[in-house]
Amino acid sequence: MLSAKSEEFLQKVLSYVKFSFDHRAIKDELENHLIDRMQDYEEQGYAEEEAEQMAVRAMGDAQEIGRELNREHNPIIGWLWRTSHFLVVLLIITNLYFVGLPIANAVGDTLMKINPAAGIPKSNIVYNLPVHQKVKLDNTVINFTNLVLEKNGDLNIFYRYYDTSLWGGGWSLGNIGIITDNLGNRYYNGSGSGGGGLVSTCRRTINHFAPNADTLIISYDYFNRQYRVEIPLKKVKENEY
Rank of each mutant, 00 (worst) to 15 (best):
M1G: 15
S3C: 02
A4N: 12
A4R: 07
E7C: 12
E7Y: 12
E8F: 13
F9R: 00
L10E: 09
K12F: 09
V13E: 03
L14W: 07
Y16C: 10
Y16I: 04
Y16E: 08
K18H: 08
F19R: 11
F21D: 11
D22T: 13
D22K: 15
K27L: 05
K27C: 07
D28M: 10
L30V: 02
L30T: 06
N32R: 08
H33Y: 10
M38V: 06
Q39Y: 12
Q44Y: 06
Y46M: 13
Y46T: 08
E48S: 15
E48A: 13
E49Y: 03
E50P: 05
Q53Y: 08
V56F: 04
A58C: 10
Q63D: 15
E64Y: 06
E64T: 14
G66N: 03
R67H: 09
N70L: 05
H73L: 08
H73V: 06
N74A: 05
I76S: 04
T83G: 14
F86G: 11
F86I: 14
V89M: 06
L90G: 13
I92G: 02
I92D: 01
I93K: 11
L96R: 12
F98V: 09
F98Y: 15
F98S: 02
V99R: 11
L101N: 13
A104L: 11
N105P: 12
V107H: 02
T110M: 12
L111G: 10
L111A: 09
I114F: 10
I114A: 11
A118P: 01
A118V: 00
A118F: 04
G119E: 01
P121A: 03
K122Y: 08
K122E: 14
N124Q: 14
N124V: 08
Y127M: 02
N128V: 09
H132M: 12
Q133C: 04
T140G: 07
N143G: 04
F144L: 03
N146G: 06
L147G: 02
L149D: 00
E150H: 07
N152D: 06
D154E: 11
D154K: 06
D154H: 03
D154G: 04
L155I: 04
Y159T: 00
R160L: 05
R160M: 07
Y162L: 07
T164W: 01
T164E: 11
L166I: 12
W167S: 14
N175H: 15
N175I: 07
I176P: 03
G177V: 03
D181K: 04
D181W: 03
D181T: 01
G184P: 02
N185Y: 05
Y187S: 01
N189H: 10
N189C: 07
S191L: 07
S193R: 13
V199G: 01
T201E: 14
R203S: 05
R203K: 15
R204Y: 08
I206E: 01
I206T: 06
I206F: 04
N207L: 12
F209M: 06
A210D: 15
A210C: 07
N212V: 14
N212C: 06
T215K: 11
I217K: 02
I218Q: 00
S219Q: 14
S219H: 14
Y222D: 07
P232G: 06
P232R: 09
P232M: 10
V236G: 01
N239K: 13
N239R: 09
N239W: 09
